[in-house]
Computed example of a mutant assay.
Amino acid sequence: MATSLRTREGGPATGRSASRHDRGEGPFRFLTTGAGILLLAIMAAIAVFLVVKAIPALQQNTSNFFTEKLWTPNGAEPRFGIAALAFGTLISSLLALLMALPVAVGVALFISHYAPRRLAGVLGYLVDLLAAVPSVVYGLWGVIFLVPFMSGPATFLNTYFGWIPLFAGDAVYGRSILTASVVLAIMILPIIAAISREVFLQAPGSLEEASLALGATRWEMIRMSVLPFGRAGVVSAAMLGLGRAMGETIAVALIFPATFEITLRVLSANGNSIAANIANGFGEATVTGRGALIASGLVLFVITLAVNMAARLIVARRSFGGAA
């Protein structure tokens, strides 16, 4: 009697339950494996499509695609390159990340460790709500409000910090790389803040309580226990935000001056990005012009893929607990 009771309560599963488990395990494994293979197939199909459509235009290009700054693929002698567009994409995205990351981490720490529970719930909801705002709304807000508003801050930066190459120049403009970067920073802030908040909330309570019991202040506890625990998660969130900034189209297309120059002067009327150029030029492009735009989209595809792979490598090498 005792033996049968142990078998029912703590022993191995019966044949009936084991067979039921096996019947559910097979289809679930098939579905998950199929979903992963389907995702890889879709990405491969996108890459093949971009390459096939870009090759004819690249063959007709009369300049080096990677070093040329001009973009005139619709002429009799197509001449276009990705240098200025890639530079504008990277500098605007990096500036946006530099502006958004400290604010996002601060918001995440306040919601997770400082704000009262009710206030934290409301703030978390509002921050997440920013991610649901369409990009065209951000673009219109940037054109109508931010472009005129940025004339004052841009003049201040140029007057007092003009010795820094970023803020140098003889004149400042509202439609600039800096303005586009501010809009991008606001757009990627919810992503970084939401992921960082969830990572900080997973910090072991025993570590936090031990730090406080040893006499540490709340900030010292966060600096010694929470931030090391969430370092990999914050870096991954930043990389995902960077990928979002580089792929943004409508918002930056409305703000960028749409010029093809390579300059570090973010207050001047220069700058463009790959995504904005595709949005602005696809409607009037010829066959070669569309192929050139697709080729630039292939470069953006590779860059964003590399950024996301770097984020995954960081997560793989370091757990959320900060262990190597």
Rank of each mutant, 00 (worst) to 15 (best):
D22S: 12
Y125N: 12
F156M: 07
V147Q: 01
G271S: 00
M150T: 00
I177R: 07
N74T: 07
R318I: 14
I188W: 10
I195Y: 04
A44Q: 04
L201W: 03
I294S: 06
G297D: 02
G322N: 05
P56F: 09
M1Y: 02
L267E: 11
V182R: 01
V235L: 15
A47I: 02
S211E: 08
G289P: 03
L227F: 14
P204T: 08
M309C: 06
I164W: 07
T14Y: 08
R23L: 14
A238E: 13
R117V: 15
G10I: 13
R23Q: 13
L178N: 00
L95F: 13
W71F: 15
I262A: 10
V52C: 10
I222C: 02
L85V: 13
I195W: 03
M239P: 09
A115F: 12
P134I: 13
L313G: 11
L189S: 02
A216K: 07
T304G: 10
G174W: 00
G271F: 01
A269K: 06
P56K: 12
A269N: 05
P257V: 11
G297R: 03
Y160G: 12
R223I: 10
P27Q: 08
P228S: 08
R23A: 12
A154N: 06
I177S: 07
F110S: 03
S319R: 15
T3P: 06
R265I: 09
G121S: 14
E77Y: 04
L123Y: 09
A47M: 08
R317H: 14
L98T: 07
G241Q: 07
V234G: 07
A171D: 11
T249D: 01
A84S: 05
R317S: 14
I164F: 06
A18N: 05
L5R: 00
T3A: 05
V299C: 09
T217D: 04
E68H: 13
A45M: 15
